[in-house]
Amino acid sequence: MTAPAGSLLVARDLRKAYGPTTALDGAEFSIHPGEVVAVMGPSGSGKSTLLHCLAGIVTPDSGSITYDGREVTAMSDAERSALRRSAFGFVFQFGQLVPELTCVENVALPLRLSGSSRKEAERTALAWMERLEVDDLRKKRPGEVSGGQGQRVAVARSLVTNPRVVFADEPTGALDSFNGERVMELLTDAARSANTAVVLVTHEARVAAYSDREIVVRDGRSRDMERVV
């Protein structure tokens, strides 16, 4: 399979095993700038591993991942960390906000990790929080806000560095459908307007419906449905 021209992030023939468990067995992936791609499949199929590999969190056993023409698997740990700080954003299902920091400090964290001053980082963070309609929570700690609000804070955090790709792993998994869809709406709106690509791992069809296309992972192999049908 050849990646379509202009792809931002392309993965070919990814293989990854955790001990005796094969998580990925020849998975393929590609995404364009500003595109929202849903990664679907039953639990245990290797969705999350695919996302972790794409994001440079996990190194695949074999296969290649190209981001913007650069081979991610060849990068050092420090380089991949820097890439994640500058070009990627992340939203997880839960347990991602630092409980001791206030919401605005949480959102500002990626900027501060990249070296911005506290003041500047929090100003930018607040703008994103306004955009995600959670600016009134700035002084609250994650423990004091609802699940939906917390996820919106997390989305704000994932977008605060103007990343080129946001990786979202079951971002609505812990939310009811109303809050979940609101989060998806805000995430995809914000991402589209910033031309940010979103890799969305989900098992919920109604969440996947916010994507532009989906790929299905089954038994560690991916299927790009656009090309099948």
């Binding site: 069809a205 996947a208 419906a209 916010y210 532009d212 299905v216 089954r218 449905m225 099948v228 049908v229």
Partner: peptide, 24 residues
Amino acid sequence: AADILDGQRSEHLRSMRILTDRKR
């Protein structure tokens, strides 16, 4: 049969995307 199911899912999702878009 898996192909049929996958194809159907894709078709369903396509409709759902249209509906979701309209909803938004």
